[in-house]
């Protein structure tokens, strides 16, 4: 198997009195598709947001390519974590694409402008170059003819595909998907999953928080089941879906399958 690109150890996160992540250990290998499943409130989305430092963690470490995400270690034994400079956090986020449940496209920009935004504002690409790249990406997600539409003129499925193109425009090494089809009408889910399937086939490393068990079973290299802020079990889709070892996994699967 390939090298580990993302590594998490002992990640803890609390919101007020409730601990939503209770020490998560996780490895994602380069080129791998990891699907994270579990009941709502199990901490899946929060974990994902810790990977690109949208959430600050309370304990533990997350490394990407051996570099600590969001923090630098201080003190004689490296026990003290201090948040990195904003510039460094931005550099790290550039390499991690994220797709949100509710798309979060920029409503005042057309589809192609949404995709261009990162390359122009962050990478300093010329508008001509960025637009060329953006139109190619939109073509890849099947939206070449919608490039000049505003998000408000697009269906949910189309918006989410633009959002995927926007994340890909930064040429990330890792893509995070936070329940990308949960806000979609049922008939629009397929087109988004199709784009994600193509992306997985092209070798992109992906962590997908999802309720789409069919997608997880078909596309994932590994599936990870979370419950109450902890990883209950992980394994290949065949193993986890057909022969779960834990009672909690079995109970969850029986409600969603």
């Amino acid at each position: 198997m390939n090298d580990v690109i993302l590594r998490a150890r002992g990640v803890r996160k609390r919101f007020g009195a409730t601990e939503v992540l209770k020490g998560i250990d996780l490895d994602v290998r380069s080129g791998e598709v990891l699907c994270v499943i579990g009941p709502s409130g199990s901490g899946k989305s929060t974990l994902l947001r810790c990977f690109n430092h949208l959430e600050q963690i309370d304990a533990g470490r997350v490394w990407m390519d051996g570099e600590l995400i969001g923090y630098e270690q201080h003190g004689p034994s490296g026990h003290v974590l201090r948040e990195r400079r904003p510039r460094d956090i931005r550099r790290q986020r550039e390499r991690i694409g994220m797709v949100f449940q509710r798309f979060h496209l920029f409503p005042h920009r057309t589809a192609v402008q949404n995709v261009m935004e990162g390359p122009v504002a962050v990478k300093g690409l010329s508008r001509v170059q960025a637009e060329k790249q953006a139109r190619e990406l939109l073509d890849h997600v099947g939206l070449a003819d919608r490039a000049d539409h505003y998000p408000g003129q697009l269906s949910g499925g189309q918006q989410q595909r633009v959002a995927i193109a926007r994340a890909l425009a930064m040429e990330p090494a890792l893509m995070l998907f936070d329940e990308p089809t949960s806000a979609l009408d049922p008939e629009l889910v397929g087109e988004v999953l199709g784009v994600m399937r193509d992306l997985a086939r092209s070798g992109m490393t992906m962590v997908v928080v999802t309720h789409e068990m069919g997608f997880a079973r078909e596309v994932a290299d590994r599936v990870l089941f979370m419950d109450q802020g902890a990883v209950v079990e992980a394994g290949t889709p065949e193993l986890l879906f057909t022969d779960p070892r834990h009672e909690r996994t079995r109970a969850f699967l029986s409600t969603v399958l």
Binding site: H104, A121, A167
Partner: peptide, 22 residues
């Protein structure tokens, strides 16, 4: 929507860029 700020942050934009552009 606070999601707009997060979307901007996720593609590596600075706080100032997020404020002025988004």
């Amino acid at each position: 929507d606070p999601g707009q700020r997060e979307a901007g942050a996720s593609i590596g934009m600075s706080n100032r860029q997020i404020l002025s552009r988004i």
